[in-house]
């Protein structure tokens, strides 16, 4: 254990004097003198009787002094720490709350032009719907035209085949008639005579 540093007697005396009420040396002396006189007067006139309780008063004063010097500072330190702790918790929670409110305000303020955006989105969706309707209409038209073209094409093909058939029939009938005509002896004679005449004519021209 280290011995405590010796205290300057002058400063000790000054500290005791300072602890007395009053600001000047005169008032301090006055208070001391008055209290001593009051004590003497009270005791001599039996206003205050010295007895066993006086000893207890002294011990109680000593106890109060001990409490004030030893316990009170420790309690004050503990209490201050505790109060700081509680205040710290309250302040931090308040700050957190403020931050949370600010964050909320910011998140809400981001949505401040939500009406405009919704209107635009509605317009766009309306336009999309109109375009979709138009596209559907056009698709229907195209489908109709395709179907009509297919029908017409089939008609054309049918007509062509009918025509081809008719031409074939005509050709067959013509060929048949021609062959029948060729099989006719009169016609054969006539052709022969004609041919002979043509040959004679040719020869005659050559001469």
């Amino acid at each position: 254990m280290s011995t405590p540093a010796p205290q300057d007697p002058k400063s000790k005396a000054a500290a005791i004097l300072d602890s007395l009420p009053g600001s000047t040396a005169l008032s301090k002396t006055g208070i001391l003198a008055t209290s001593a006189a009051a004590a003497i007067y009270a005791i001599s006139n039996e206003l205050y009787v010295l007895n066993a309780e006086t000893i207890l008063l002294c011990t109680f004063t000593g106890f109060s002094f001990l409490i004030a010097k030893l316990v009170a500072p420790a309690y004050k330190e503990y209490a201050d720490k505790r109060m700081q702790h509680v205040s710290g918790i309250l302040n931090s929670s308040r700050n957190k709350h403020v931050a949370a409110v600010k964050e909320r305000i910011e998140s809400v303020s981001e949505l401040k032009n939500v009406t405009e955006t919704t209107k635009v989105l509605f317009e766009v969706s309306k336009e999309t719907l109109e375009l979709e309707a138009k596209a559907f209409e056009l698709k229907q038209k195209v489908d109709l035209a395709t179907e009509a073209k297919a029908v017409l094409d089939s008609w054309v093909r049918y007509e062509a085949s009918v025509r081809q058939l008719q031409q074939k029939q005509i050709a067959e009938s013509v060929i048949g008639k021609v062959q029948a005509e060729l099989a006719n002896p009169k016609f054969q004679d006539k052709v022969l005579q004609q041919s002979v005449a043509d040959v004679e004519k040719l020869f005659a021209s050559l001469k």
Binding site: L50, A52, E53, T54, I55, L56
Partner: peptide, 14 residues
């Protein structure tokens, strides 16, 4: 106890 001791001490100191 306190009062008895106080009384004894007072008599002693007086």
């Amino acid at each position: 106890l306190i009062v008895i001791l106080g009384g004894l001490l007072f008599n002693l100191m007086a």
